[in-house]
Design a protein around this nucleic acid. Structure first.
Lengths: 345, 345
DNA sequence: AATACTTTGAGGTACGCACCTCAAAATTAT
DNA sequence: ATAATTTTGAGGTGCGTACCTCAAAGTATT
């Protein structure tokens, strides 16, 4: 049987009240008594029963995800995973909600953050472009006592803010390495395409991609980033122009998580066959392209892991604990046809 | 506030006792009353408080991992992860132990399993070669009321037994695809090497590897499997022989999770440079080789996920619930230098 | 209508812990 | 030595659920 507080009290030679004071850091206990209790904890191997503690405490974690409303399939998957964990964590005193903020307008996001306080949520995961305004609003939110993690968009480590997501520079570098190894036999140019290059994530991926290519694969030359801006017609035209200008395009790299417009334009023009193609995120569209052999590899981050990790980090912060950095590192996954498995998650 | 059983009773217009009977599937409730309670559950959004339920039930899950004692670094990592989760799950009514069984002797493993009963453990994760003897002992163990999962070694889906691990055929196919794409520019032979080909896992990997190569990369020819048998001297000799017999070896594939002897022998002979090399499992040795550029890719399964998944499956079975197959699928990970990250986990 | 049987209600105890109060004991200051 | 203060103990309540008992109400069988 696992030792309880009662056993601990007996072992330490004190009363339950004193054990309670020590365990919960309440005042009014002599230093030597504290030490005696701690010694007993180690001696009998006492471990707090977290479920019982939370039950008694009536503690609840109210967490919220703030996501952009304009979204691709990757974002939809994230929302699905949030809904799943909403159910899964309900039994663990954790309420998970999500909200989709209109557009990418930093003003509006900042305004929304200003309206949030400890009465609304204990922790918030924010997926938003990191502008000075958003950043300021975030800092004030934290000062008001709300825990915050930067979600998916952001930068690991660099800031004092918690970040859950992948290092996009490394993700781009991963794509670069694969492209390099896939194309090493024939020098040529690489078409790089994205929905927009205004997003910081895309810029970082591009940087990582270029770094590997220029260092290790001098035979491959990455073309300037082509932007779709979500416009199929425009994309069709530019793609055609690029392929008629450059006859030696050997690979295609889609930077952004929105891949559909880009890939379909290239495919329509008949330019995908025989070329290496790499894209980001495991969306059903990308998965289909990979199975069909149109895409050669997908660089992905697991949406389920992202969501659960953000929740764990926020809960740790709510408890005043430091999250386990090693456990919360999100992997950059490489998917090819053979390791796709069955589930999308 | 979240609805409790009390609220549920009121909403359903029945007593707490009846609610309890319905929730816990106890007999003595009319079918229409059951339906009324279920309707109320959906209506008010009642969700069982798992912590409170477990507390009241006083339930404990005693789980045990049975692992081979002779082991490579991968096995050591598994043990480390088990120890970690031992602590992490202690607060969730779950005791996790592990035992390392001497050798790979099926007799001994079977004998050991015969000695285990419900008084020792509620669930066991077994990592052992699947011989008829072991299989029989496992089935009898299950009949005695102990839940069992096949761990790492085994086959997904095919059996009625739960399995936690990757599909080794797919893992081999993944290696095959990568090798194919990495070497597509120069036809030649692939050296395939393992500690032993008596292990079923290794056979399956080989099968998957060959299937992809013969189908999609006819220019590449995989040589017969070379076995190290854990003997560096012997390995040195065979490796030399192979490389002098075949001058067109363009790639090396190490099947087994024990990679050290094989890779060091080839490296010593100076035959790794300029060739594509792929191995299995993220051991510190493999990681080092990958960072050094000696290895080109690692096919891995995440030890932490393996352990936690096995625990979740066993707990589900102990509760008489069906585990969520989609959540428990272990990913076949592809690691290259750029997506290694920091932690080994 | 009497009997047997099924279904339901009321109420209690327990799980391990948090958090509270009040009084008793021990220690320190005067 | 007495007063003031700190430290400790004893005891209680409640969190949400499981599981038990016993009696009351309902239904089916003869």
């Amino acid at each position: 049987m696992r030792p309880t507080t009662k056993d601990l009290a007996k072992a330490a030679g004190v009363s339950l009240a004193t054990v309670d004071r020590v365990l919960n850091g309440r005042p009014g206990v002599r230093a030597e008594t504290v030490e005696a209790v701690n010694a007993a904890i180690r001696r009998i191997g006492y471990e707090r029963n977290i479920s019982a503690a939370n039950l008694a405490r009536g503690r609840r974690y109210r967490l919220e995800f703030m996501l952009p409303s304009s979204g691709d399939q990757f974002l939809d998957t994230l929302v699905d995973r949030i809904e799943e964990t909403r159910v899964a964590f309900a039994g663990e005193h954790t309420e998970v909600r999500h909200r989709r903020v209109l557009g990418n307008d930093p003003h509006q996001i900042a305004a929304l953050l200003s309206g949030i306080g400890p009465q609304d949520a204990d922790g918030i995961a924010i997926m938003a472009p990191e502008t000075p305004q958003v950043r300021d609003a975030t800092m004030r939110l934290i000062e008001r006592g709300v825990k915050v993690v930067q979600f998916v968009s952001g930068q690991p480590g660099a800031r004092r803010l918690d970040f859950v997501g992948v290092d996009n520079n490394a993700a781009g570098a991963t794509a670069g390495r694969l492209m390099g190894k896939f194309c090493a036999h024939r020098p040529g140019r690489i078409l790089v395409i994205a929905d927009t290059m205004n997003a910081r994530d895309n810029l970082e991926r591009r940087q990582g991609f270029d770094a590997v290519l220029t260092r290790d694969y001098p035979g491959l030359q990455a073309l300037p980033s082509l932007e779709t801006h979500g416009d199929p017609g425009r994309t069709d035209r530019i793609v055609r122009a690029f392929f008629s200008n450059y006859s030696d395009i050997v690979g295609v790299y889609v930077l952004s998580s929105e891949t559909r417009i880009a890939l379909q334009a290239i495919d329509r023009a008949g330019h995908l066959a025989g070329r290496q193609a790499i894209a980001h995120e495991r969306t059903s569209f990308n998965e289909q392209m990979l199975r069909a052999g149109t895409l050669d590899a997908i660089i992905a981050q697991n949406p389920g892991h992202l969501v659960r990790s953000a929740i764990r980090v926020l809960r740790s912060r709510c408890d005043g604990r430091e999250p386990l950095a090693s456990q919360e590192e999100i992997r950059i996954e490489i998917l090819i046809r053979e390791n796709l498995g069955h589930a999308t998650g």
